[in-house]
Each structure stands twice: as structure tokens, then as C-alpha cells.
Design a protein around this nucleic acid. Structure first.
Lengths: 118, 118
DNA sequence: ATTAGTGTACTATGTCAATAGTACACTAAT
DNA sequence: ATTAGTGTACTATTGACATAGTACACTAAT
């Protein structure tokens, strides 16, 4: 099942974002097992190595725990998930503020646009 | 004068953002002449082609008008500048909303974070 | 011990974006 | 006609990314 990926970002990064989002939304529970790299590769229509990179990044940020020979699991450290949530929110916010500043928009007017949109 | 560019974005894109911002902020006036591709290349410490690409993109979005043999100028069509400002605001907002949705954040909580930050 | 299922490591390949270097083409002034 | 200043076009190089193939290492079940 080849899925649709955006061109403006590497596939592995998009997969990382997707899994992160699923964890933060609670679609993926702590301790839950992710598909094997081979399974996930077939599901997504990408190469095994691409999935491996995704799992590597997720483990580096302590979103998952990988057990050789057993699989990759969402961390059971719920506090860590909360931390990650906070970290990502401030990071996204900071990037956004930097961006709009360089484009000459004020925070206040952008907040108004955000409230109307979506 | 080699300037500092972020790694996570192409140099040409950063230059486009910068010039757009300067126009939207009013630092660059309608009709004003931009430096020649060579001048700007030296100033910024990048290659002529990189600057050329920047000028090409700016012209494509009708932010500037390029006259062969004479130079590149900020458009005198102030209405167009206003349009661009609106377009970019909604575009940035949409991207932001898509991003936070995929990461599992709500618009409301992100607005709170934005208000506190920066 | 063997097997099936897991993640890991390594090398090679092709593609594309970004950048650089160089030569060309147009315009205006002299 | 020449010159200086402008934008433009072409080719090459580099690095990141994705892919592919293959081999290895660990675990659990049999």
C-alpha cells in the first residue's frame, strides 16, 4: 500500500511526524508494539532502511524503546511523553514566531488569522 | 561579508524570505532598485546563481520587476504587495495549523503558547 | 539445535536539489 | 564600436535522500 508523501520533506521525517502525532493523540498507547521494520516498509511502500531510520530517530528522542529480536515499542514512560509534548509545542511555536517576524507579521495579527482559519 | 544562514532551509529560500519581509515591513520601497546579482552575491557570500534564483522567484510572485541590463526593482504595484501580504499570512497560517494538527495539538492550546512566547 | 521473527550494519546505486564556475546576451552611456 | 553594468544560460560538483541487496545479531518458540 503505497501512501502519499509530500515532496517538501523526507519520507522518514514525515513518518516520524506521523508516529509522534499518533502517540501524542493517544492513538498509540504506551507499551504498544509498532509493526516490524519489514511490515511497516511493505505497508508504507518504502524501503526497510527508511523505516529503520524512522525507528532510530524515535528511539533517539526516547519516544520508543527498541528491543532487538522483539520489536519496537512505544515508551511506557508516560512522563517522557508529556515532556516531548511540551518540547515540541515550544519548538513549533518558536519556529513559527521566528518565521512570521522575518516576514514582517506581528504575533497579534497572526493569532487573529489563526483564530479565523481551520 | 558572509552571512549566517540556517541549515534547515536553502539559502535562496532564506534570501527570498528576507527580501519579502523587508518589502512587507516597508524597509524596501516600491520602485526601489535591488543590488545587482553580483553585488548581492558578494554581500551575502553566495554564488551569483543563487541570487539569480532569488530574483527569479521574487519576479515569479510579482514582488519585483526585472529589466534586463538595468536591474531588478521592487514592484510599484502597491496593491500587489498588499495581496502578497494577505496570501502569505494565510499560507503560513494554514501550514501551521496543518502541522500542529498532525502533531496532535489543538489550535487553542497553541495560541496560548504563542501568547506567552517571544 | 533449529527456526522464524525481530532489529542492525554495510556497501552500492540512482536521483534530485543546491551551489558554483564560466560563458553568453542585453542595455545604456560614451 | 566599445565599455561597464546588468540579467541569463549552461555545465559540473557536491551532498542528502531513498532505494536495493546482502549479511549479521539477537530473541523466543519449538
Amino acid at each position: 500500500m503505497t501512501q502519499d508523501f509530500s515532496k517538501d520533506k523526507p519520507i522518514y521525517a514525515q513518518l516520524v511526524d506521523r508516529i509522534c502525532g499518533d502517540v501524542l493523540k493517544g492513538y498509540l498507547k504506551p507499551g504498544e508494539k509498532l509493526p516490524s521494520v519489514r511490515e511497516y516498509a511493505i505497508e508504507s511502500g518504502v524501503n526497510v532502511n527508511t523505516v529503520q531510520r524512522v525507528y532510530k530517530e524515535l528511539e533517539a528522542m526516547e519516544m520508543t524503546e527498541t528491543k532487538r529480536g522483539q520489536g519496537t515499542f512505544i515508551t511506557t514512560d508516560e512522563e517522557r511523553i508529556g515532556q516531548l509534548r511540551e518540547e515540541m509545542m515550544t519548538q513549533v511555536a518558536t519556529q513559527f514566531l521566528t518565521m512570521i517576524d522575518s516576514l514582517g507579521f506581528t504575533k497579534e495579527e497572526m493569532i487573529e488569522v489563526l483564530k479565523k482559519g481551520g
